[in-house]
């Protein structure tokens, strides 16, 4: 098991100019590691749909590397998206899955069949160009640079330590940071895309 923050720190030196978005509770840690916030996007708002929005960005900007740090609870809510992505096969799409085997944001209940799902195997069987699975930080650190040179869609499943939240939503500390629309407007300015 690996801490999510260590995953982000391992990825950061190999980011280049990639666009990055995240889903799930631990995704918020990325903002503390990123050095290119105008290339970071917040896309989520509906259950399990960040993966599809990231897929749309990848299709719309095929010359840019699109990186998604997904979570297994979110992916299970939209598992067909794997087939949709494999079908269009965007070469610029890098799909990391941070798998803590639970819904950490709702108190740590296990996702269905939590410990027994081979997500990288799923991605491979639907047609991702390349898949990887990591449980060890050192292996991830030594591999991630080469993975970012691969042709997508690439799927990287990583077992991470859970960060369980038990407080009712109203009592939780707000993570702060930019709103979704702020990240989108900053992003579009960075890429010279006219806001519609």
């Amino acid at each position: 098991m690996i801490d999510a923050t260590d995953v982000f720190k391992a990825f950061q030196p190999h980011r280049g100019d990639a666009i990055v978005t995240t889903s799930g509770t631990v995704g918020s840690h990325w903002a503390n590691v990123s050095t290119k916030p105008n290339r970071d996007l917040r896309l989520g708002s509906s259950m399990g749909q960040t993966v599809s929005a990231a897929f749309g960005v990848a299709l719309g900007l095929p010359e840019e590397q699109m990186v998604l740090f997904d979570s297994e609870g979110a992916l299970l809510m939209n598992l067909g998206a794997l087939a949709s992505i494999a079908g269009k096969a965007p070469k610029n799409f890098y799909h990391f899955l941070l798998d803590n085997e639970m819904y950490a944001t709702t108190g740590g209940q296990p996702v269905p069949n939590a410990a027994n799902i081979d997500y990288a195997g799923l991605a491979k069987s639907v047609g991702y160009a390349s898949t990887h699975h990591f449980t060890d930080l050192e292996e991830l650190v030594t591999s991630i640079g080469e993975i970012m040179k691969e042709e997508g869609p690439v799927f990287i499943s990583i077992k991470i330590n859970p960060e369980v939240q038990n407080l009712p939503m109203a009592l939780r500390e707000r993570s702060g940071g930019r709103s979704r629309i702020e990240t989108i407007r900053n992003f579009q300015k960075e890429f010279g895309i006219a806001s519609v």
Binding site: L41, L43, S46, G48, Q49, T50, S52, A53, A54, F55, G56, V57, A58, L59, G60, L61, N78, G80, A81, A83, S84, G87, K88, I184, F187, Q188, F191, I193, A194, V196
Partner: peptide, 22 residues
Amino acid sequence: VVPVSREGEAPSTALGLNVAGQ
């Protein structure tokens, strides 16, 4: 043409395309 597997993917994929200027 972007085929998706379930209709819930459609608005979200479209949002990503919109963000990308499409």
